[in-house]
Simulated scan of single mutants.
Amino acid sequence: MLAQAVEHLIKNIVDFPDDVSVRSHENARGELLRVRVNPEDIGRVIGRNGRTANAVRTVAQAISDHKIRVDIMDVRR
C-alpha cells in the first residue's frame, strides 16, 4: 500500500507518469522504496534544494508505521 501511495503522489508531479515505478525492498535498516522516473522528470521530483523529495519522504514516513527510506533515481539506472 505504501509503494502505491508514493507512486500515485509521484505520478501527479511528473510529465511522464508512465515511466514512474516504485519498488519496495526490505533490509536490516528498514523498508526501502526505490522510485524510478524519466530522466527529464528527475529535477521536478527532487525540486529546488530537494524540497519536493523531502516532502515525499515526509509523507511516506507519516503514512508508514515503521522506518522507511525513499531513493529517487532515473530510469537509466
Results as ranks from 00 to 15, higher is better:
30 G>P: 00
25 H>G: 03
17 P>S: 06
40 E>A: 08
40 E>M: 12
50 G>M: 06
25 H>F: 09
20 V>R: 13
15 D>I: 05
48 R>S: 04
42 I>E: 11
37 V>R: 11
49 N>I: 02
45 V>T: 04
31 E>P: 01
48 R>Q: 04
19 D>P: 13
6 V>G: 07
3 A>Y: 07
39 P>H: 04
41 D>K: 09
29 R>D: 00
25 H>P: 04
41 D>Y: 11
53 A>T: 00
22 V>R: 02
13 I>C: 13
44 R>K: 15
33 L>W: 07
3 A>M: 09
47 G>V: 03
33 L>R: 00
15 D>T: 11
38 N>H: 15
21 S>K: 12
35 V>L: 09
27 N>R: 06
26 E>G: 04
3 A>C: 05
7 E>V: 01
46 I>G: 12
49 N>Y: 04
17 P>L: 11
47 G>D: 01
52 T>W: 08
51 R>Y: 02
2 L>V: 03
20 V>L: 08
36 R>Q: 15
8 H>M: 06
17 P>C: 10
48 R>E: 01
42 I>F: 06
29 R>K: 09
49 N>E: 14
31 E>H: 02
47 G>I: 09
10 I>F: 01
11 K>Q: 10
38 N>P: 07
12 N>E: 06
15 D>W: 08
17 P>F: 11
11 K>A: 05
53 A>R: 10
3 A>G: 07
3 A>L: 01
24 S>T: 15
16 F>Y: 15
38 N>K: 10
18 D>C: 11
25 H>A: 04
14 V>R: 15
38 N>Q: 09
6 V>L: 14
18 D>L: 14
29 R>Y: 03
4 Q>F: 11
47 G>H: 01
10 I>H: 13
40 E>G: 14
27 N>W: 02
48 R>W: 08
38 N>G: 13
52 T>I: 11
42 I>G: 13
27 N>T: 02
14 V>Q: 14
4 Q>W: 02
40 E>H: 12
43 G>E: 06
48 R>N: 05
3 A>K: 09
12 N>I: 02
43 G>K: 11
52 T>P: 05
40 E>K: 15
31 E>V: 00
52 T>K: 04
46 I>A: 08
27 N>P: 07
40 E>N: 14
8 H>D: 09
25 H>M: 05
